[in-house]
Design a protein around this nucleic acid. Structure first.
Length: 575
RNA sequence: CUCCCCGUAGUUCAACGGAUAGAACGAGGGACUUCUAAUCCCUAAAUGGAGGUUCGAUUCCUCCCGGGGAGACCA
């Protein structure tokens, strides 16, 4: 990667003067991509940092570093020139030949361009994790979409990634559902629309239980029976589980989500007794007078319950068993939880408990948090009030809206093709809406914004791609003879410069677990590509120039396609 | 009461302690006999408040205000 090469050069240049710069640590050498092109391809503020320590003039120090840089043996192959800018930045300009070399590399490696070396580290990513007997709702979108994009990106940079869903299929709520089913359930209705009916029963029962607390006890009893292996309850529960998983699978397919392993909470049920006993034996957990078992967490006012006073287990207990199991089974170096902000407290408690129990080392467990998907009212989505919007409905609506637009704008496309495009574009828009935003901010659910097919959106990038591909189709096949030094108008250069950054953007997205960095990069690349498209004729250009421009277009489209693919968004050839 | 996240144009969002705070939607104006106008160009418009650290703060620290979330038998 170019950035790390420049860092190496800088380190060497600075270490020549080490006697003059005694207190500099290597990590202080930072290289970044400047926002304005006039400041070069890369910049460093190393001189400014040194100036602070040494209390000297930063420009002077920059001059010293610059002259040392120029003495380095191989630097001229990469760097065309370095410039110093006030108050003390050193700006690097990459050689044009090197940019051309990069472009050829893209054409040669295609979708492998930017891929990292295998890292021999395993990361388990837990994401999506819906609750059984409820449909996947829009509020699951974030965990699912962000999780899958991170998995794709982490794999691309070289990690071994195990993707995992941990559906909630255990707990008192299933007692409520079973009780509701026994009261009002109808097997025919469940067969017809399983999830809808289960949700209806659950909502109806929990509403009724609000008015009549006796019903709550009834629900708890049903769960207790389930835990103790009651045949009828077990059968119902298994039925609900199977129907739910089938339903999820359908939506996952629409979203192009590929989960390696689905291991529900109930899987860990048999191990929980011994887990609790071990925790007690080790003295990590304590038994209360009421029969509950808790793990006191140092510096936390709240202990973590692992056994309820009625002897039953709780989500935490199952999560702890899962941590132990995952680290062992996949020899994982890390487990990442792609889970909402709201769960921060709970997840931290679980992490601390796992560390106390010796299941995981500090730093092995990470919470990739994200802001909430808020209802249009600005409030939280909640199942109980029945305000849940099924994800599938959103995806269908998105597809419908984009079909209308394809019909209007590209009527000559065959019907089947139109439908395919509508799906790719509609669903892409929904996913990209989420992925292009910072993970941590809350998102207000808004049909119009989410399904906006103009402006900064997936369709914008997809449309750019389709136009580029259209040129390539009309050009009559790939060109072998091109001379990239002919690419010298401002739009061509801007793209050539920008293509350089792709591998580093991917790396940053992986380091910070922020897919929106990649999304932003693709938007900016598409902007530049559109500007090029609007201003620069390709097919009508003189032969050599034409071929060089075709090569450039080929490279852009490869990067767009691959970048979108990492985000889980498809790029249509026509739209 | 304690802890966590967020406060940026009218709206929805960007910005690794850096250089002139970027986009999009919406508003107003312009560009299709020429590679797909789901595009492009132009105009107006923003860092909640007060301090502090720094050569430099939207970013870090303190306090205040506002929104959301969490705080032992839900997850």
């Amino acid at each position: 990667m170019i950035k790390s090469k420049i860092i190496d050069y800088l380190k060497k240049a600075i270490s020549v003067n080490l006697r003059n710069y005694p207190r500099l640590s290597a990590s202080m050498v930072e290289v970044f991509i400047p926002e304005n092109e006039k400041f070069g391809h890369y910049s460093t503020n190393a001189a400014l940092k040194l100036a602070k320590i040494l209390k000297r003039n930063p420009i002077q120090i920059a001059e010293e570093i610059k002259s040392q840089l120029e003495k380095q043996p191989n630097i001229s192959g990469l760097i065309d020139k370095t410039k110093i800018a006030a108050p003390g930045f050193i700006n690097f300009f990459i050689k044009k030949e090197y940019l051309a070399k990069r472009l050829k590399e893209i054409l040669k490696k295609k979708d492998k361009f930017g891929q990292g070396e295998p890292k021999k580290r395993t990361i388990v990513v837990e994401y999506s994790s819906p609750n059984i007997a409820k449909p996947l709702g829009v509020h699951h979108l974030r965990s699912t979409i962000i999780g899958q994009a991170l998995i794709n990106i982490l794999r691309f940079v070289g990690y071994r990634v195990i993707s995992l869903s941990f559906p909630g299929d255990w707990g008192t709520q299933f007692g409520l559902l079973i009780a509701g089913y026994k009261k009002w359930g109808n097997p025919e209705k469940i067969k017809k629309e399983p999830i809808k009916e289960m949700l209806r029963l659950y909502v109806k029962f929990s509403r009724a239980a609000k008015k009549n607390p006796k019903l709550l006890d009834e629900g708890r009893k049903e769960f207790k029976k389930l835990e103790q292996g009651d045949k009828e309850n077990r059968r119902l529960w298994k039925w609900f589980l199977d129907e739910s998983l089938r339903d999820f699978e359908r939506v996952y397919k629409l979203l192009d989500i590929k989960i390696d392993h689905t291991i529900p909470e109930s899987y860990y049920e048999p191990e929980l007794k011994s887990l609790i006993n071990n925790a007690l034996d080790k003295g990590i957990a304590k038994k209360g007078k009421d029969g509950s078992v808790v793990i006191p967490i140092p510096n936390s006012p709240t202990p973590e319950i692992i056994q309820k006073s009625d002897g039953g287990t709780i989500y935490t207990t199952r999560e702890l068993a899962a941590i132990k199991h995952r680290l062992k089974k996949w020899k994982a170096d890390k487990i990442l939880y792609v889970a909402a902000n709201q769960q921060t407290f709970h997840i931290n408690q679980v992490f601390r408990s796992a560390e106390l129990l010796g299941f995981a080392k500090s730093g092995q467990l990470g919470h990739i948090k994200f802001g909430m998907m808020l209802a249009p009212s600005g409030k939280k989505f909640a199942t109980r009030e029945g305000r849940l919007i099924p994800l599938e409905e959103v995806l269908e609506e998105a597809t419908k809206r984009s079909l209308k637009i394809v019909q209007k704008l590209n009527p000559q496309l065959p019907k089947k093709e139109k439908e395919r495009v509508a799906k790719i574009v509609g669903i892409g828009a929904v996913k990209f809406f989420d992925l292009s935003q910072n993970r941590l901010s809350d998102i207000v659910f808004d049909w119009n914004k989410m399904l906006n097919l103009k402006g900064s959106s997936a369709p914008y990038i997809q449309y750019t791609y389709a136009r580029l591909k259209s040129i390539l189709r009309k050009s009559g096949g790939p060109q072998k003879t091109f001379n990239l030094s002919l690419l010298k108008n401002e739009h061509e250069l801007a793209i050539l410069n920008y293509l350089l950054y792709f591998p580093e953007i991917i790396e940053d997205s992986a380091i910070y677990y922020e897919p929106n960095r990649l999304a932003g990069y693709l938007l900016r690349l598409a902007e530049k590509a559109n500007l090029f498209y609007e201003t620069t004729p390709v097919l009508r250009a003189e032969l050599k120039l034409r071929n060089s421009r075709l090569a450039l277009i080929e490279a852009i489209s490869l990067i767009i396609k691959n970048g979108l693919k990492l985000l889980g968004v498809e790029a249509p050839e026509k739209m």
